[in-house]
Amino acid sequence: MLTLEMIQDAKKTLEGVARVTPLYESAFINPNANVFIKCENMQVTGSFKLRGAYVKTASLTEEEASKGVIACSAGNHAQGVALAAQKKGIKATICMPAGAPLAKVEATKSYGAEVVLVPGVYDDAAAKAVELQQEKGYTFLHPFNDEYVMAGQGTVGLEIMEKLPEADVVFVPIGGGGLISGVACAIKSINPNCKVYGVQAAGAPSMKQSIEHKKIEKLASVSTMADGIAVKEPGTLTFEACMKYVDGIVTVTEAEIASAILMLLEKHKMVAEGAGAVSVAAAMTNKVDIKGKNVVCVVSGGNVDVNVLDRIIDKGLQENGRIAEFSVMMADKPGQLIQLLQIIAQTGANILDVNHDRRAKGVAVSNVVVNVTVETRNKAHYEEMVAALKAQGYTI
């Protein structure tokens, strides 16, 4: 079983390899709590995964290392294993889901690993890795269900306790459970009064469901922008650790994740991937009572594809009421459109797009539908604009 001593040994192994990442205070995440961000998105390779991957690789015997290593990953463990293997002079093969962000795939290749893209999600990549391991005789490096990996990830917890021993609550993302297992073990061993909560995407609640039913369960499917935690089934070791150390598991929606990513970008100039931002989303939306408490959000990674980031930002703006789309039916007469747009402009809303549609289905010949996209300050500003339009007789 994972112990504090193992995590402390892992810390020594990681000296000169992994960064001691910053713990930044945030005035924006939740105004009712003292919130801090543990910035594992600033770690070498862009996520916490290097910690566990390197500790595991360092533990290999000469015989195991000589066979080469194989791993499965949605992207961050892949980079961690690839870099660890490169530093140790070991051949690495990584199985990744075919839908993994291009940035993660290319980064993994840049560390010298051979990448095998597998159709499906993480679990499908894991099955392929096992198949290749049996066929080629590689040494398998599991991304979370391994005590050395869990110990490496647990060094995040040691750093939190060193910087903020008075922490009351720590939010940790959960995919397979390696990070929270190590972090919770470290924190509970040092400060049993500190609460540790796991956070999963609502579309991939495998550990939450397993803990609630007190047995490991496999989801039929997962669906979330947080690809790093899109795991169908938790590990046996991580399940046991969560049962022992974790105080609870909450879920966040896709819209809440997008809002958290947007907030980190705007307020902290910080890039977080979906999996990394779930902890911040939980604190922002008060998934547990944190009023007046010292709270740490572990932002586990920042390896997000810029093309995906653009769509996430748009979703976050919509969720916060800062971009809105609406339709207006009105008479098809000269001057009507300019009157509509003037009312919108007078409220201070910024018009992004206008579509004047005479051919919309079900619209009378004498009418027209105008579809408008606007930029507003917040939901209240949007409602103010709608009220101004309705006051002039428009139906929204």
Rank of each mutant, 00 (worst) to 15 (best):
V69G: 00
A82N: 03
M42K: 13
F36V: 07
E15G: 04
R19P: 02
G52T: 10
A65W: 05
F28G: 06
S47R: 08
G46R: 01
G80E: 05
F48C: 12
E63H: 07
I29C: 00
G46M: 02
L23P: 05
F28I: 04
E62R: 12
N30G: 01
I29G: 00
A82K: 01
A58R: 05
L50D: 02
N30D: 05
S73D: 08
L50R: 13
F36H: 07
I70N: 02
S73F: 08
T57N: 04
K38H: 06
G68V: 11
K56F: 09
G46S: 08
P31L: 13
S59F: 10
A74T: 15
I37H: 07
G46Q: 02
N32P: 06
L14D: 01
K56A: 06
V81R: 02
Q86F: 09
E40A: 02
A85T: 08
A53I: 04
L23W: 12
G52L: 06
V69C: 03
L14N: 01
H77R: 04
G52I: 10
Q86R: 15
G52K: 02
E64M: 09
K87W: 11
V20G: 03
V55K: 00
E63W: 02
V44M: 15
A53Q: 06
A85V: 08
V55E: 01
A33P: 11
A58Q: 12
E25L: 07
L23Y: 09
V81K: 01
L83V: 08
P31K: 12
E40Y: 09
V20F: 09
V35A: 01
E64R: 11
L83M: 15
A33K: 11
K56P: 01
G68A: 07
C39H: 05
V35I: 14
L23N: 05
T57D: 04
N41W: 12
E25A: 14
L23K: 06
T13D: 13
Q86Y: 09
Q79Y: 03
K49P: 06
N41L: 14
P31D: 14
S59D: 12
A78Q: 06
Q86T: 05
A74V: 08
T45H: 02
A85Q: 00
A85F: 01
F28S: 15
T13I: 15
L60C: 14
E64H: 12
G68R: 03
C72Q: 10
P22K: 14
Q43I: 06
T13H: 06
T13G: 07
A58H: 04
Q43K: 09
K38F: 08
I29A: 00
A65Y: 04
E40G: 00
C72L: 10
H77P: 11
P31A: 14
K12H: 13
Q79G: 11
K12V: 04
K67G: 09
N34C: 07
L60R: 07
L60K: 09
H77V: 03
A82P: 00
L60M: 13
R51L: 10
I29T: 00
K87N: 14
L50T: 03
G16R: 01
K49Q: 13
S47A: 15
E15C: 09
A18N: 03
Y24V: 13
E62A: 15
T21R: 14
